[in-house]
Computed example of a mutant assay.
Amino acid sequence: MDTDRLCARVAEVAEGVYDLRLRPDPPVVRRWLAGRLTFGTAPAAALGYTVLVADELVTNAYDHTGVPLRLRYSRHRTGLLLEVTDAAPGKAQTLAAIRDGARGAGTGLAVVASLTLDWGVHHDAAEKTVWALMPTK
């Protein structure tokens, strides 16, 4: 592998974006994410939890908004940040209520909460992003 290709591959591992606008099948999204996160090495259990959390966030965007836009991951000193953005900012209040302990909904987000260091929602007038910070060890 030449140096330019290796550098590009390492940069791809640090941060990546997957376009969800055409609603790719979840297994395709999972394979894409796993392929990027396992470059070098990654503990199998941590990878499994990361893929599970990403799958839950993507599935929520598919099922509850109808307008998914992108899955983004980025490595940070504190962990791996997963972000799923959609074009339904009005749904942010529901997610905030689930985060604050509302019952009767959000089973998948309860799983997300139990596997992450933290998670949340931020939005503006056009988009909403649900994010989750995964531990790296």
Rank of each mutant, 00 (worst) to 15 (best):
Y49I: 07
D100T: 06
W32T: 03
Y62N: 06
L69C: 14
H123R: 11
A96Q: 15
T136R: 09
G120F: 07
Y49D: 14
L133E: 04
P135D: 02
G104L: 00
T107Y: 08
L57C: 05
H122W: 11
R5E: 10
D86M: 06
A92I: 09
R99W: 08
D124P: 00
H76P: 01
A88D: 14
K137E: 12
Y73W: 11
T129L: 01
D86I: 04
G108A: 00
P26N: 09
H122M: 08
F39Y: 15
A125R: 08
D55I: 02
D63W: 02
R75W: 14
G40F: 03
L71M: 07
G108H: 04
W131K: 04
R30S: 14
A132C: 00
W131S: 02
G35V: 08
D2Y: 03
A34V: 06
G90H: 14
L82I: 07
F39S: 12
A87S: 08
G66A: 02
A102T: 09
G79Y: 04
R31S: 10
A113G: 10
G66L: 02
F39G: 12
V28G: 14
L47Y: 04
D4T: 08
T38Q: 12
F39D: 14
V111W: 03
L117Y: 05
Q93K: 14
T78I: 09
P89D: 10
L109Q: 04
A42I: 14
A42K: 11
H122Y: 13
A97Q: 12
E15D: 14
L81H: 10
T136F: 00
G104M: 04
R31E: 12
M1R: 10
L33D: 01
I98G: 02
R36L: 12
D100E: 10
P24V: 05
L33Q: 04
L95V: 06
A11Y: 07
A42Y: 08
E12S: 15
V10F: 03
N60W: 03
I98N: 00
S74V: 08
C7I: 15
V121D: 09
K137D: 15
L95Q: 06
L33E: 02
M1W: 09
T59S: 10
R36I: 11
R70N: 13
Q93H: 15
E127T: 15
T59D: 10
G79P: 00
G35L: 10
V13L: 11
Q93A: 15
V51F: 01
E83T: 13
A105R: 12
G101F: 01
T116H: 03
A87K: 01
D25R: 14
D4I: 08
V29Y: 01
K91H: 11
L133Y: 00
A126T: 13
A96C: 13
K128I: 15
R36M: 14
D25W: 10
L80D: 03
A46P: 07
A88T: 12
Q93S: 15
D55L: 05
M1V: 05
L20Y: 12
G66M: 01
D124Y: 03
A102S: 07
P89W: 06
T85W: 03
D2V: 00
D63T: 08
V84Y: 04
N60Y: 08
R5M: 09
A97K: 08
D118I: 08
P68D: 06
Y49G: 11
W131G: 00
R103V: 02
